[in-house]
Design a protein around this nucleic acid. Sequence first.
RNA 1: GGGGCUGUAGCUCAGCUGGAUAGAGCGACGGUUUCCUAAACCGUAGGUCGUGGGUUCGAGUCCCGCCAGCCCCGCCA
Length: 603
Amino acid sequence: MLNLSRSIENKLRAALEKLYPELAESSENGEISLDPQVVQASKPEFGDFQVNVAMALAKPLKKSPREIAMEIVKELEKDKSFFSFCKTPVIAGPGFINLTIREDCLATEIRNRIGDSRLGIPLVEGKESKDQSTSVVLDFSSPNIAKEMHVGHLRSTIIGDSLARTLEFRGYRVLRLNHVGDWGTQFGMLITYLKKVAPDSLHMAKAFDLGDLVKFYREAKQCFDSDDEFQTASREEVVKLQSGEQSSIKAWKLLCEQSRIEFQNIYDRLDIRIQERGESFYNPYLQEVVDDLDSLGLLVSDEGAKCVFLDGVIGKNGKALPLIVQKSDGGFNYATTDLAAIRYRFTCASKGDCASRVIYVTDAGQANHFAGVFQVAQRAGWVPLGGRLEHVPFGLVQGEDGKKLKTRSGETVRLRDLLDEAVARAEMDLRKRLKEEGRQEDESFIKKVTTTIGLAAVKYADLSQNRITNYQFSFDKMLSLQGNTAPYLLYALVRIAGIARKGGDLDTRMDQLRFTEPQEWNLVRGLLKLDSVIVDVEEELLPNRLCAYLFELSQLFNRFYDQVPILKAEAPDRSSRLALCRLTADTLRLGLGLLGIPTLERM
RNA sequence: GGGGCUGUAGCUCAGCUGGAUAGAGCGACGGUUUCCUAAACCGUAGGUCGUGGGUUCGAGUCCCGCCAGCCCCGCCA
């Protein structure tokens, strides 16, 4: 109902300007806001929208809020077109103006959405031109080469993918970038170690798989931490790598290739599309970044390291905190890479991505780091006017004990194991159910359903929580058949598919819609809220808002399904109700699609 | 010591630019199947929104102090 809320807002604005021209004037210099404060009604009994402006104007106008509300309503009513979509406004409480949309208007809105592939959600303006104003860089997932993807990558991967899908649906050109850790000290370490224990592996393709690599990594790390000589050799190896020494580069490429295969396996399972562009991509730009910072006068040498001192961030010793961009040994670090990436991503023409919005989906622990990097990028002038640079932080994945999620033996949980277990548990649930209900299903059905449910459960559980807080991971809860879970939403769709199988034609074009029952109207109103939810997610980058909406919609549908006969109803109720079923199914499918979750006909 | 995030029902969490009597789900208790998948629906109980101030017509929401938990704080990412 975005279009309606906008119309209402415009009409109110006009009314306010006419009624209180003196306030309109002072609103221009920001003293008083003439924002009509139109919001969705906080409760169904208050109608569809409520206007909260009367209370705010009471003081400047020196009148009672109810009196002001009355004046506003009177002015609104002069405009006959207002009544084409709105019922008579009601003043309530201290001075709220409650607005209810006319039922014929709601029915028209529903009719317009049926059969519309976008379900009434507008494309972002200017999407036809692939210019800067519509291009978004989304940096997510970003595992480290030579390590396996583990539970720590879960949230970034799932949240990032969902945000990408939402922005793409709105019409943005989205660059999904996997900023993999494919550079830096860890490789020096690993290559040094491999040279020592398995020199052949460094020039042979597929000499080992990722499992070995992980083991080697662990051992290399141990040497690095305990052996000074090894540490020095590793650092030298990094320098060789950075200077492009042939044998080092070759070894590095082999390592990357091996990891890539394993990552892709996970992405395929989760149906996630992402383009790899690791840290190493920015190597050619690192020196430029430092030089530019220098010529801008931002660079300071301190204890041999080149840094930029941050404004407003005080360190331990009372001095400003530095952001180190070049280490005393001449090497660059992640801050340098991140700065180079920001510069590249905002740059237009052939030397960059020409983005207008750059989004990082990483854990909240990196908030300080990004705040520092963003500040330096701003001060260096690398963020264009109107360009948005955003860190989308999320909390830790915890076990049910409230501590960091670990396996029983205390190790980090591998992502593939976690997904396997979700699917295995979904399979146990389904087989139990089939047995209880005496149903017969073939193995391919069971496999498809349990894979879908298991992966959906993992994704949905993560997305449905406000990402900023830590998240308590529980297979039992996410796979539960009740509550705000993926199975609950999928079940609503299965019910609709059941109606279609039993002879309900969902595809007819409905010209006449007639709704009589309160459950129908509740569902209608729910369906029409989709657009504002999507736009909200686009702006706030909070997928849990979409989840909450889909859950509420499923509840509305289940009540409707439970209390209102559909197939047994007579015309025109029958076709009207089938139309609601169809639009509900399309809405749930679209919404779940934006979460990266496929749907089922039967389960 | 400095900074960030969090603190809402027994548990897990929502709460959108400040707005009407703070909402879900789970768990507990009690109902509903001649009907489209009961993996559902309906009802009951349960809260001094960590705490103390302040701003405001109005504060879970904004500001300040304090308490608790987690995370970060110069050459790892």
